[in-house]
């Protein structure tokens, strides 16, 4: 009898698992559980410390290279980092190599600068999409105006107050790339290592373990990984957002996966012996 049920459990229709997961993940959306996020990742703390230690007026170039497919993980990261930069009175330039990012960048800059009373062209500039990342990354090492002579609105960048004293990587405090692609590797390759500009990164959870060697070698000064990284960063700057609310969902989802893995293994263990 028990054997019959356990066999049934192991041959469960996977659509049942999908349904269970859907219900479980909707619960915290309807009624947030407020589960705490207590363990801040080391590499995320490094990003925070690096930006925190920059002097006001410093210039940070942020390359937002993600599209709607990785938005839930990377959009909260980007918002948190830009908020931190504005809070520290850093000058911010944002660029992208992904056409799909342009709408998401507009979405961030429609709301976040107002929270800190920051003005376009004075405190920040949004640069237009550019194709050919290798050419752009290397050219930014000599004269960035040969590529970005105009901002996304078509206004000349060279005379903007936000760009005062900025010609190339030498004048920048840091470069950060938040991406769901392999573009962070390229930034380390063509900007960080070649022009010795401090590199920071933000990536999806899937690609996070692959950046361990860059962190260990110091080629990356810090890394934010996935939604957990976004939640960590939101906690560090004290402005909670979508990353933090996602922690409830992640915890419940992980508990379901753990339950299924452990239960299936226990059942298999006993079925083999009895």
């Amino acid at each position: 009898m028990l054997r019959k049920y356990t066999e049934k459990f192991l041959k469960m229709d996977r659509r049942l698992i999908f349904a269970l997961l859907t219900i479980l993940m909707f619960i915290p959306l309807i009624k947030p559980l407020g589960l705490p996020n207590k363990a801040v990742g080391v590499s995320c703390q490094q990003v925070y410390d690096f930006i925190e230690n920059l002097k006001p007026g410093g210039f940070i170039l942020i390359s937002l290279d993600y599209d709607p497919s990785t938005r839930p993980e990377l959009h909260p990261q980007a918002k948190a980092v830009i908020r931190h930069a504005f809070r520290k009175d850093l000058r911010v330039a944002v660029m992208t190599f992904l056409p799909g990012s342009t709408g998401l960048i507009e979405e961030i800059f429609a709301t976040v600068p107002k929270e800190y009373n920051k003005k376009e062209e004075i405190d920040y500039v949004v640069l237009p999409y550019q194709a050919g990342f290798v050419a752009v990354m290397t050219q930014l090492g000599s004269d960035m105006y040969s590529i970005y002579d105009k901002d996304k609105n078509g206004n000349p960048t060279k005379k903007m107050p936000v760009m005062k004293g900025i010609t190339n990587y030498d004048d920048m405090s840091a470069v950060m790339c938040i991406t769901g692609t392999a573009l962070l590797d390229q930034w380390v390759l063509y900007a960080g290592d070649k022009f010795h500009v401090p590199m920071l990164g933000g990536v999806t959870a899937v690609s996070q373990p692959g950046y361990g060697p860059y962190l260990q070698k110091g080629q990356l000064k810090g890394l934010i990984g996935g939604m957990k990284g976004a939640a960590d960063y939101e906690g560090l700057i004290g402005k909670l957002g979508k990353g933090t609310t996602g922690i409830d969902v992640l915890n419940l989802g992980h508990l379901l996966v753990l339950f299924l893995i452990i239960t299936s293994n226990i059942i298999l263990f006993f079925m083999k012996r009895f």
Binding site: M25, P209, T245, L250, H254
Partner: peptide, 22 residues
């Protein structure tokens, strides 16, 4: 570690869509 992170990443993406649906 990679698989664990992949699961977490996929759940994050799913959460993003569910959040919008909600």
């Amino acid at each position: 570690a990679v698989f664990g992170n992949t699961v977490m990443g996929r759940f994050s993406l799913l959460y993003g869509r569910f959040d919008d649906l909600y």
